[in-house]
């Protein structure tokens, strides 16, 4: 079991307490392609933050690759994030004054890998994304799809246990959305990368093998979607 959540609760306390997660139990195996679906305010982003060790939780337990992730120091959580999790964000979140290859290198920089090896690894991943020619371009010179592929390369470079994608197609048109989702699917099928996609688009969610529906801080149901028939619109394309 790669990810195991048991009775995870999370309450935000901004003036008045807001109980966001009300006891989440979730298991994800290595190599799975899971999407987490839910309306805004359902708690899916909070769940993603907890899965990504970006945020703490109040109650319950979260095991990631056998390690209990609870009450970690900033340094420990940064190290776990760096080694075990690759992030793909809705708004790409590339650093604007760094070229594509430098952006991809950055996680290895914080691991202390030397410049030469970092560069080689980053170039290898950019090649895999079909972006070799764009390596020395800055993010603002690239299209949304290209930027997201750079971000995926950056997420992959540390060989993480999981890829966490937060609305990865949120800022893309439908054509590039399909491309990005196909890329993620291929990574999952061919390289066995565990992928968790958080989305509110049913078409995107339909790409995954398992769909976790969240509603009001609880898991409503877990849907087996190996046939990819979850969305009536999602069979051929992604509805925008």
């Amino acid at each position: 079991m790669l990810i195991e959540l048991k009775g995870v609760h999370k309450t935000y306390d901004n003036g008045q307490p807001l109980h966001v997660l009300k006891g989440i139990d979730l298991q994800i195996e290595k190599g799975e392609f899971v999407s987490i679906m839910g309306a805004s305010g359902s708690g899916k982003s909070t769940l993603l933050n907890i899965l990504g060790i970006l945020d703490n939780y109040d109650e319950g337990e979260y095991h990631l690759a056998g390690k209990l992730i609870k009450n970690l120091s900033e340094r420990e959580s940064a190290t776990y994030r760096n080694r075990m999790i690759g992030f793909v964000f809705q708004s790409f979140n590339l650093i604007g004054f760094k070229t594509a290859v430098e952006n991809v290198e950055l996680p290895l920089f914080y691991q202390g890998v030397n410049r030469h090896r970092r560069h080689e690894a980053a170039m290898a991943y950019l090649e895999k994304m079909g972006l070799t020619d764009w390596a020395s371009h800055y993010p603002n010179e690239m299209s949304g799809g290209q930027k997201q592929r750079v971000a995926i390369a950056r997420a992959l470079i540390t060989h993480p246990e999981i890829i966490l994608a937060d609305e990865p197609t949120g800022a893309l048109d439908s054509k590039t959305s399909v491309e990005v989702m196909e890329l993620l699917t291929r990574l999952n099928r061919e390289d066995g990368v565990t992928i968790i996609v958080v989305t509110h688009e049913s078409g995107v969610a339909n790409c995954a093998d398992k769909i976790v529906h969240i509603k009001d801080g609880l898991i409503e149901r877990v849907e087996d979607n190996r046939l990819h028939h979850a969305s009536q619109f999602g069979t051929d394309t992604i509805m925008k």
Binding site: L54, R75, A78, R81, R83, L94, Y110, R154, T158
Partner: peptide, 16 residues
């Protein structure tokens, strides 16, 4: 903030 947040998310510790 975003840049620093990204750096933190991909593994920079506060001391970095």
């Amino acid at each position: 903030t975003i840049e620093i947040g990204i750096r933190r998310a991909i593994g920079a510790v506060p001391r970095d």
